Amino acid sequence: MTANKLKHEQVQYLEFLTKDIERAKEFYHKSFGWKFVGYGPDYTAFGGDYVDGGFTTGEPVKGSVLVVLYFDDLEATKAKVIAAGGKIVKDVFSFPGGQRFHFQDPDGYELAVWATV
Rank of each mutant, 00 (worst) to 15 (best):
T18E: 03
T18S: 14
T18M: 06
T18C: 11
T18V: 10
K19Q: 06
K19T: 07
K19H: 03
K19E: 08
K19I: 04
I21V: 14
E22Y: 04
R23H: 14
R23V: 07
R23M: 12
R23K: 14
R23I: 02
K25M: 09
K25S: 00
E26P: 01
E26A: 15
E26C: 08
E26W: 08
E26K: 13
F27H: 08
F27K: 03
F27R: 01
F27M: 08
F27I: 07
Y28T: 03
Y28I: 10
Y28E: 07
H29Y: 15
H29D: 15
H29A: 15
K30D: 11
K30P: 02
K30M: 12
K30Y: 07
S31R: 11
F32S: 14
F32W: 15
F32T: 14
G33S: 09
G33Y: 05
G33L: 08
G33C: 06
W34E: 12
W34Q: 13
W34N: 09
W34T: 14
W34G: 11
K35V: 13
F36E: 00
F36P: 03
F36N: 02
F36V: 08
G38A: 05
G38L: 01
G38D: 04
Y39T: 06
Y39S: 09
G40P: 06
G40C: 10
G40Q: 07
P41S: 05
P41V: 03
P41N: 07
D42V: 15
D42F: 15
D42T: 15
Y43G: 03
Y43L: 04
Y43E: 05
T44K: 02
T44I: 10
T44M: 05
T44F: 02
T44E: 00
A45T: 04
A45P: 00
A45V: 08
A45Q: 07
A45W: 00
A45K: 01
A45G: 03
F46G: 03
G47V: 03
G47H: 05
G47F: 05
G47T: 11
G48W: 07
G48A: 11
G48F: 09
D49Q: 08
D49R: 09
D49C: 08
D49N: 11
D49W: 02
Y50P: 05
Y50I: 14
Y50V: 12
Y50E: 09
V51E: 15
V51C: 15
V51A: 14
V51R: 00
D52T: 09
D52R: 00
D52A: 07
D52V: 04
G53N: 06
G53C: 10
G53P: 02
G54M: 06
F55E: 01
F55G: 03
